[in-house]
Design a protein around this nucleic acid. Structure first.
Lengths: 172, 172
DNA sequence: AGTATAAGTGGTCAATGTCAACATCAATAC
DNA sequence: GTATTGATGTTGACATTGACCACTTATACT
């Protein structure tokens, strides 16, 4: 339901209806609607973490970035739910924990791939921002691919930058 | 209301209440709730376009990026509404038009700053993705600033990459 | 066998988005 | 000077939804 019809269409009563149970059954599993969304988001973070680990094993920085974008494009609604900021982390301790674990793994893998040098942390954040933003812009159909297939396009864009890990440089 | 309490808290009836009118008066101005959100999003795109134009006049690529991130951080809910993809562009022709105009201006300004060369378009998309993703990650409080102030942090991150505008290069 | 716990049921309520019918009032046309 | 029209607002209604409550059923475990 989430992927096919979006978050707002994911109504507790409709879930119950499709499950063939009474309109109140879901409340035995989730105290509020938001809790169900939080659980879905947490599951998404685990998926993303698994995809990242897999990419880390077999490939380099580039592969990680492509895996990130691919995940977002494969589960756009889920991705929006995870990063949409509409689920307050203050409640939902489980979601907070899973998300933090995923981020830690992600930044750890990033740090391992980026040469140890001044500005390495900056470059890590830049790398993450790049793939995150690229995924979202692609999801919004706001970018002209210029005839290329999506994977090819992603590869080209990710190949178009280099990270500066040496000492600070004057602005271009 | 949008910025202070989020999109879901922006209820038509509440709007009417605060405006001191009856619960149905808003329907004389917007056929559905979604139309009101679309209007707010369109207004946001005009603001963003204006900010970009201003940055383009006085500064370079770096200034444009900083202005983009600054806009997002100054109006997070608005930014999420604009790019959240929850407003179908199929309806709301006005929104589609304003958004397209803003994007055209943005990519035009980008193209003018990026050296004419193979891969220039890729670099433009990468630049946009970078600032877009950085803004969203910062909004989500998912990045450790490392003690720096936000503007400083943004500057550092944006300074940590270079664009490859020459002929294609082998992957790193 | 007996009981505790999880899961499900039906009833209810307030809030919301939306629709239809009616009212008001200024500008315009005749 | 009056009638018409369009924009704006109002009242009343309806279905849907999230949430709460008391009650029942089923499963598991002592």
């Amino acid at each position: 339901m989430l992927e096919k019809e979006g978050v707002e269409a994911l109504k507790l009563r409709e879930v119950a209806r499709r499950a063939g149970v009474s309109h109140n059954a879901p409340y035995r599993h989730f105290p509020q609607r938001e809790a169900l969304l939080a659980a879905l988001a947490a599951e998404g973070f685990e998926w993303l973490g698994a995809a990242q680990r897999k990419a880390t094993e077999t490939g380099g920085l580039r592969a990680m970035g492509e895996a990130y974008v691919q995940f977002a494009l494969a589960h756009p609604q889920r991705f929006r739910l995870m990063f949409g900021g509409r689920i307050p982390l203050a409640r939902h301790a489980h979601l907070r924990e899973v998300a933090s674990r995923t981020f830690d793994g992600l930044s750890g893998a990033l740090a391992a791939r980026v040469p140890e040098a001044q500005g390495a942390q900056n470059a890590s954040v830049a790398a993450w921002s790049l793939v995150h933003g690229l995924a979202l812009l692609l999801m919004g159909d706001r970018i002209a691919l210029g005839g290329r297939k999506r994977e090819e396009f992603v590869r080209d864009v990710l190949a178009s930058i280099r990270f500066v890990v040496g000492p600070a440089q004057p602005p271009a």
